[in-house]
Amino acid sequence: MKQILEIKDVSRRFGGLQAVNKCRFSVRAGSITGLVGPNGAGKSTLFSLVSGFVRPDSGEVLFDGNHIEKLSAHEIARLGLRRTFQIPRELKQMTVLENLLLVPERQFGDQVRSVLLPGKRVHEEERINLQKAQGVLEMVGLGEKAQHPAALLSGGQKKLLELARCLMADPKLLLLDEPTAGVNPTLIRHLMSVLRRIHASGVTLLIIEHNMTVIMELCERVIVMDRGQVIAAGTPAEIQSNKEVLDAYLGGVSA
């Protein structure tokens, strides 16, 4: 079984707080893996450590068999590892469409010299990217919002925009930080089917999620974190009956 992501004893301290403490687990290529745990367990911080936004104090991270713990965030993104943010970071002053058009790499129009040359090449490139962006927006259910300023989206729609921005890059591994938080129940149903389709197209998903229905229905494996450490891992059913997990997490939230 090929592991697309291997996290080995990764630690990170913020002042006096050990946010992530010798965290260790792997994600199987082609899986949908859940990452759960009480608030403050260090899940989001772990995403930042893996995606290069925060540097680990120690430990190793392997993506597709290659060490990435020393790479910078843009390098990791270019390898095909993309993440969403728990609090959506939509570009408010841009339209939904422009938020996606930012994404394609190596755009000719992204170079200063393109400005001084005839516009044909840039327009052709934009046309192709536009088509792709429209397709991605349709897929996540934001097709009708393409021309809206991102600032006007609802909380749930902003979550979808974060997802769409990642999809625009054809990632290999997607780290989704609470994709259903703030999304209304009908939309969650839709989002789950979208995630299934993304998965079916060959993308591996690691999802931080509090909604147990989503975890149960989507994930083949669930990792449980508490106080910066992995305290359990297994199938959703195993996790639900695990005493330690119930104590740490489900006991409080009651799924």
Binding site: S72, A73, H74, F85, R89, L102, G109, S114
Partner: peptide
Amino acid sequence: YPIGRTLKAIREDEGVVTSVGK
């Protein structure tokens, strides 16, 4: 042009530009 879009994105949130690999 696309370059202007990237510059505006930097003005709004540099982290997003980094997260898309730029």
